[in-house]
């Protein structure tokens, strides 16, 4: 009996899908595999949004693929086009340069291409671009640090990994300080590689070297975790606050709970993949144009608005 029922159900579904064939669209999503907190957030939000969009648009199939490097990602999008016959591709490239041509090839075959976070070196290969705002993250942070210190004080900076992203953030930060808060002095800038262990080590050495530090700009929440431990160990009370970045849920929670050192955070949200997927789905399903470029601003999170940025189920 049960089998018969299943069979009937199956044939019904088949009939239904045949009827929907005209409006059926396939969207491929190619993202880096979860190798650190932020990319883990990307993978989480991509899968969440897949479920949400497939429910919202019955004719839409979303395929999410992760890749550990550019090479694997290039093969992957080829397969997405050849095997899965995708109509649209949302890609967060591992690296811009090596993926520019593979994405361009898909576009020539008629796939609508949307690039997230890292723009291709040849912008004509992307139909649309959705990204966070790295210089903005630096500027918002600089503004907060300058203002909170009342325009005067000593700041140490912990950088990420030597990349364009890191440079844009630091340049943004310094430009605001130079223009608006010339009495805020940057004591030093060392690389902490966007991880907790290096954040701890670099901060320990800053504490040895500088007897008076007013604020720390760690620009990343993982680095900030290490910084907090180092300050706690040294038992120093001169530091007024530590500003991270990205919007890791543990840090947002601290801001929300009124932590004495983590008074704010600046977002660089992995939810940008959700925004990109939503915009793309809307564009292909309703046949409307999608904005050529969408920049998701970096927002200052303080105690008053932290609840809006707290996602307890996300791994990040």
């Amino acid at each position: 009996m049960q089998q018969l029922k299943n069979l009937a159900l199956l044939s019904l579904t088949l009939l239904a899908s045949a009827a929907l064939a005209q409006t059926k669209q396939v969207m491929g999503v190619s993202i880096p595999s979860a190798d650190h907190g932020w990319t883990a957030g990307i993978v989480y939000w991509a899968n969440q949004t897949k479920a949400e969009l497939e429910k919202q648009y019955p004719g839409l199939t979303v395929i999410v693929k992760t890749a550990k490097d550019s090479n694997e990602q290039a093969n992957q999008i080829q397969d997405l086009s050849a095997v899965n016959k995708i109509n649209a591709l949302v890609i967060l490239p591992q690296e811009s340069a090596p993926l520019t041509r593979p994405v361009g090839n898909l576009q020539k075959k008629g796939v609508f291409t949307v690039v997230v976070d890292r723009a291709l070196t040849d912008p004509t290969a992307q139909n649309a671009y959705v990204a966070g705002d790295n210089p903005g993250l630096g500027k918002v942070s600089g503004e907060y640090v300058g203002k909170t210190l009342g325009g005067k004080g000593n700041v140490v900076v912990l950088r990420g990994i030597a990349t364009v992203i890191d440079n844009q953030r630091v340049d943004g930060f310094e430009s605001v300080l130079k223009a608006k808060y010339p009495n805020v002095k940057i004591l030093d800038k060392q690389y902490a590689n966007w991880n907790r262990d290096d954040g701890f080590k670099v901060m320990q050495d800053y504490l040895t070297r500088f007897p008076k530090i007013d604020a720390v700009w760690a620009q990343d929440d993982d680095i900030a975790v290490g910084v907090l431990k180092a300050i706690q160990q040294a038992g120093r009370s001169d530091i007024k606050f530590v500003l991270g970045g990205a919007g890791m849920k543990e840090m947002i929670k601290k801001v929300q709970d009124g932590d004495p050192l983590i008074t704010a955070d600046v977002t660089y949200p992995p939810t940008m993949i959700r925004d990109a997927m939503r915009l793309t789905a809307k564009s292909i399903m309703t046949k409307t144009a999608m904005p050529k470029s969408t920049i998701i601003p970096s927002t200052l999170v303080t105690k008053s608005n932290a609840a809006k940025f707290y996602y307890p189920d996300s791994p990040f």
Partner: peptide
Amino acid sequence: LTYLSQGGSIS
């Protein structure tokens, strides 16, 4: 480890 932590951190 990456699998266990889903790429994030285990605290």
